[in-house]
Design a protein around this nucleic acid. Structure first.
Ligand SMILES: NC(=O)c1ccc[n+]([C@@H]2O[C@H](COP(=O)([O-])OP(=O)(O)OC[C@H]3O[C@@H](n4cnc5c(N)ncnc54)[C@H](O)[C@@H]3O)[C@@H](O)[C@H]2O)c1
Ligand SMILES: NC(=O)c1ccc[n+]([C@@H]2O[C@H](COP(=O)([O-])OP(=O)(O)OC[C@H]3O[C@@H](n4cnc5c(N)ncnc54)[C@H](O)[C@@H]3O)[C@@H](O)[C@H]2O)c1
Lengths: 224, 224
DNA sequence: CTGTGCTTGTGAACGTGAACACGTGCGCCC
DNA sequence: GGGCGCACGTGTTCACGTTCACAAGCACAG
């Protein structure tokens, strides 16, 4: 096995889950043992060459003239993504969004069981959500440690986001998904991703507005 | 001689809302009339040169040696993003997520009022959520038309996502935000963005696994 | 009015990822 | 067992976005 520069581009990492889901999705009825890059590309909504290049980062798991063995590919992708075991998750902020996330079964199904819910509001502590008791955020270190939690989700108001992130980091959590519309900074060795719905809507608004026609006929002038 | 309407790179469009929020965030106490690219960069968590280049796509609204006039910049950015008026939104799928979104005030605050809720389940139709009556998806064309809705949010199970997207498009909606973990295709003149939480978690999982050690084996390292 | 300091605006270098094209190797057919 | 076709793997080219560095230009002081 070559252990050479296996650095996988970020863009590729982001597509692997999509390939994974595409493969899981076909399963049953369309039970072919192998799949071509072209077919997978179609399922995932990308270009076939991109699929091949992406998969090549994992190793040479395809067979020329045939395609990729579906089962084996699934295994390798899961392994690479670290999905061979569960990653328990803690949700911070059991409000509107936090509860929706907690009640959603899709995470547990995909290997991300909700292991704990925490909140700063004493009124929420003790409440049961989806069979899990809400605990106080001060207990975070003990909770994270006890359950071996490595991933935290921030679902608090924006004002509390940075503080919550700091507490998550202090509790030993090294991967954070932030839903609050606020800039959060974490140490370099901590992963941080954000999901910002308002930004998504504003991006849609931009293109919508663009189409609506700010003075049609004005074409792009070459600028150089 | 000002070159207006330069094509704005997608990456820049995605950052404009962040700048906008940063500016709105400082407002009150820190009420300086102008702001430098360096300061704004710090607030938005990016590089100062990037801020300047991004803002330059909007036009030359800065003053050398001084900075950008905050009020004027806010106006120009809002105008460019199409935020000078509201964009009513329809949410399709009033389940877990759909209700959380409907109950969230942040969208209305930012100019994206929830104008309608629709669902395919007869049991849900008529239900009131956040003061809005859930209507049947068959009424979508009439609803969209009547309220002048241009943006739709898909919050249905993955299996229904493509069908819902088709119906949104048929109803004249040209911007779609998809929360369902499914590949959805739309006509070229329709904007589509997706938010996929499971993918986000899997990306975090990858880097987490990466840190845990390339040769750590498949068992969980419970060394907390 | 001229000099000085400061921050913008932007050409150019650089880096990364996407797309392409084709060489490569495997399976299969004859 | 040799040739043929097919789909992978990948070097190359291209496009885009980021970063750098600095000239340009404005405010203000003297
Ligand atoms: N609800 C949505 O659909 C939605 C959509 C997009 C973004 N968001 C964002 O997600 C975040 C949560 O939204 P929400 O609607 O659930 O808000 P919410 O007010 O309903 O819930 C926030 C929860 O966080 C808790 N909290 C506050 N400060 C805390 C702290 N320091 N530590 C721990 N817990 C704390 C509160 O007690 C509350 O339970 C917000 O930042 C919001 O902007 C929500
Ligand atoms: N709940 C979450 O926190 C969460 C998180 C991530 C992703 N998601 C995704 O968001 C989507 C919705 O999740 P949910 O938990 O709200 O599911 P849900 O089952 O609670 O709600 C789905 C709703 O969609 C309606 N629906 C089904 N088919 C429809 C159709 N053809 N037209 C109109 N409405 C239809 C159902 O009646 C139901 O009300 C799913 O795709 C899920 O994977 C949800």
């Amino acid at each position: 096995m070559s252990e050479r520069t296996r650095r996988i581009p970020e863009a590729t990492v982001a597509r692997l889950p999509v390939y994974l889901r595409s493969l899981l999705g076909l399963a049953e009825d369309d039970k072919a043992a192998t799949i071509s890059s072209e077919r997978l590309a179609e399922l995932a909504g990308v270009n076939a060459a991109k699929v091949r290049k992406d998969l090549s980062y994992l190793g040479s798991y395809g067979t020329r003239g045939v395609g990729y063995d579906v089962e084996y590919l699934l295994f390798q992708m899961s392994r690479e993504l670290g999905l061979t075991h569960d990653w328990p998750v803690v949700i911070v902020g059991v409000g509107n969004l936090g509860q929706a996330l907690a009640n959603y079964g899709g995470f547990t199904d995909r290997g991300f069981p909700i292991a704990a819910l925490v909140d700063a509001d004493p009124a929420k502590v003790g409440e049961m959500v989806h069979g899990i008791a809400v605990r106080h955020i001060d207990d975070l270190p003990a909770i994270a440690d006890g359950a071996g939690i490595a991933i935290g989700i921030i679902a608090t108001p924006a004002g509390a986001a940075q503080e919550v992130a700091d507490r998550l980091v202090a509790a030993g959590i090294t991967s954070i998904l932030n839903f609050a519309p606020a800039l959060v900074t974490v140490p370099a060795e901590t992963s941080l991703r954000k999901v910002d719905l308002a930004v998504e809507l504003q991006i849609l608004s931009f293109y919508q507005q663009q189409r609506a026609g700010p003075r049609a006929g004005v074409t792009v002038a070459r600028t150089s």
